[in-house]
C-alpha cells in the first residue's frame, strides 16, 4: 500500500513542481534568461492565498487572486526593471537582477507576513481521506494532480492553437528571426513573463494546504524549479511536465527507501540526466 501512496504523492508533488517549472521554462524560452525571483513569486502567491482565506474565508478565491497578484507584480517588474535588460549578451545581468529581486522579495514578505509558519487545512470537501478497506489516502493531493493536468492542457492549447501561442513559440525558437518576421518580441516577452510568474503564484496557492510557508521556502522552491526545468530541457513545456513528474516520483520513492538521502536523490537524478543528455531530456542541441 505504501507503494500506491508513494505513487500519488509523487504525482501530486510533481504537478506542483510543474506549475513552478512551466513558468520558468516559458520565460527562458522567450527571454533566454533564468528568473531567479521565481521562487519568490511562488511564496507571494502562497501568502496572498493565505490572506484571502483568512480575510474572505474562501480558499478558491485565493486560487483566483493569487495568480492575478503574481502576474501584476511580474508586469510591474518587467516594466520597471527587466525591460531595460532585454537583449542579447545581458543574460548574466538579468540573472543578477532577478537574484536581487529574490532577496528583496524574501525580506519584503518577511516584513509583510512575519516569520511565523503559515499553513492552512485542505478546503472542504477535500479535507478528509478516501478510505478503501484498509487503505486510506488524503483527497487534496488528487486536487493538485487535477490542477496540474488542467494547466498543462490549457498551456498546450494556448501554445499550439492560438495566435499569441504561435508568437511565443516563434520568439522562443529564434528571437531574431521572430523580430524580422514582425513578431513584437518585447510585448511577447512581457506577456510570457507575466504568465510565467502567475503560474508560479498559482503553484504557491495550490501548495498551501500541503506545504507550510516560512522564510526560506522561496529559495528551496527556486532550486527545485531549476532542477525540473533543466532536466526537462529549457524552454520546453512538455519537458518541464515530464521532468516534474520524474522528480516528484524520485522524491516520493526515495523517501520510502532511502529517507536519509532524499535530497541527494534529486540532485543525483539531475547529474545523471545531464551526463546522459547534456541539454536535458527534451532539450535541443545548442539552446
Amino acid at each position: 500500500m505504501q507503494y500506491v501512496s508513494a505513487l500519488f504523492n509523487g504525482l501530486s508533488y510533481g504537478m506542483l513542481l510543474f506549475l513552478l517549472g512551466a513558468g520558468l521554462s516559458l520565460v527562458f524560452g522567450v527571454g533566454r534568461f533564468i528568473n531567479l525571483a521565481h521562487g519568490g513569486l511562488f511564496i507571494i502567491g502562497g501568502y496572498v492565498g493565505f490572506t484571502v482565506l483568512n480575510e474572505l474565508g474562501n480558499f478558491w478565491l485565493g486560487i483566483l487572486i493569487g495568480p492575478m497578484v503574481g502576474g501584476a507584480l511580474g508586469l510591474a517588474a518587467d516594466l520597471l526593471v527587466l525591460r531595460r535588460l532585454h537583449g542579447h549578451g545581458r543574460e548574466l545581468d538579468q540573472v543578477l537582477v532577478t537574484f536581487g529581486l529574490a532577496l528583496i522579495i524574501a525580506d519584503a514578505t518577511r516584513a509583510g507576513w512575519g516569520g511565523d509558519i503559515r499553513s492552512v487545512g485542505a478546503p472542504a470537501p477535500f479535507d478528509r481521506p478516501i478510505e478503501i478497506g484498509d487503505f486510506s489516502y488524503p483527497t487534496y493531493p488528487l486536487v493538485i494532480i487535477g490542477v496540474g493536468l488542467l494547466v498543462f492542457g490549457l498551456l498546450w492549447l494556448l501554445l499550439q492553437r492560438t495566435r499569441v501561442g504561435a508568437m511565443i513559440r516563434a520568439a522562443a525558437g529564434d528571437p531574431q528571426m521572430a523580430q524580422v518576421l514582425g513578431v513584437p518580441t518585447a510585448p511577447v516577452l512581457r506577456l510570457t513573463f507575466a504568465l510565467g510568474v502567475a503560474l508560479a503564484a498559482l503553484g504557491g496557492v495550490v501548495a498551501l494546504p500541503r506545504q507550510a510557508l516560512a522564510p526560506g521556502r522561496d529559495f528551496e522552491m527556486l532550486l527545485l524549479a531549476l532542477v525540473v526545468v533543466v532536466i526537462g530541457g529549457l524552454g520546453r513545456i512538455e519537458g518541464a511536465f515530464w521532468a516534474a513528474l520524474l522528480v516528484g516520483l524520485t522524491d516520493s520513492y526515495g523517501k520510502l527507501f532511502f529517507p536519509e538521502f532524499t535530497v541527494a536523490m534529486i540532485f543525483g537524478l539531475l547529474a545523471l540526466v545531464l551526463i546522459w543528455r547534456p541539454e536535458g531530456l527534451l532539450g535541443r542541441r545548442a539552446v
Binding site: Y13, S252, L256
Partner: peptide, 16 residues
C-alpha cells in the same frame, strides 16, 4: 524513520 529538515511531504513517513 528519519526525514530531512525542511521536508514538505510527510505521506511516505506516515505510510511507514
Amino acid at each position: 524513520i528519519p526525514f530531512p529538515l525542511g521536508n514538505s511531504d510527510f505521506s511516505s513517513v506516515i505510510d511507514r
